[in-house]
């Protein structure tokens, strides 16, 4: 049941409990309890809205930053990761296997804001060896949703 609920609300967090109960063939109380339990356990961490900022007049710049760091004794990467993720302009921080250690995504008002964050804040942190900043030019698909094209029903209207 959990898996089914999550699969649905991952795509549509606005669906209400009654509707979830109908389409999953369960009663509302079960659904409500599961949702509550998952929120408490931190399985469900939030209900966000996907926004294509490109289509608004609001300027936003997103960057992916590869960060190489020296792990600290006893702390590994966690300490530095924490120092990074505490910045509100940081969107996500992932520990990555491969050529670098942390992948940081960052949102800023302008190129300049992002670059100054990287040069002033990020690269000066103790333990940060190097950074490589990639600016996102266009989002084709995000969170499983294609942003560049709208779904269009091209089927014939009535078929046997």
């Amino acid at each position: 049941m959990r898996e089914q609920i999550l699969a649905i609300i991952e795509k549509n967090s606005r669906i209400n409990i009654k509707e979830l109960a109908v389409i999953l063939g369960a009663d509302e109380l079960t659904i409500a309890n599961e949702l509550k339990a998952m929120e408490e356990e931190g399985v469900i961490c939030g209900y966000h809205t996907m926004i294509d900022w490109e289509k608004t007049s609001i300027e936003k710049v997103t960057a992916l930053i590869e960060v190489r760091i020296t792990p600290q004794r006893g702390q590994g990467y966690d300490n530095i990761a924490e120092r990074i993720y505490k910045y509100p302009e940081v969107n996500s921080v992932y520990l990555i296997s491969g050529g670098y250690d942390l992948l940081v995504t960052l949102e800023g008002k302008s190129l300049k804001a992002v670059s100054s964050f990287v040069s002033d804040k990020l690269s000066t942190l103790d333990g940060v060896l190097s950074t490589a900043t990639h600016f996102i030019l266009k989002k084709y698909k995000d969170h499983g949703t294609i942003l560049t094209k709208k779904y269009e029903d091209t089927r014939e209207k009535v078929t046997p």
Partner: peptide, 25 residues
């Protein structure tokens, strides 16, 4: 096919919502 007749009517209506399709979406 009896469906054909109906298809012709529906096709004329631009804003009709169809629940008449026999294939996956």
């Amino acid at each position: 096919s009896g469906i054909r007749k109906f298809f012709d009517i529906v096709s004329e209506m631009k804003d009709a919502i169809s629940l008449g399709v026999g294939e996956p979406d």
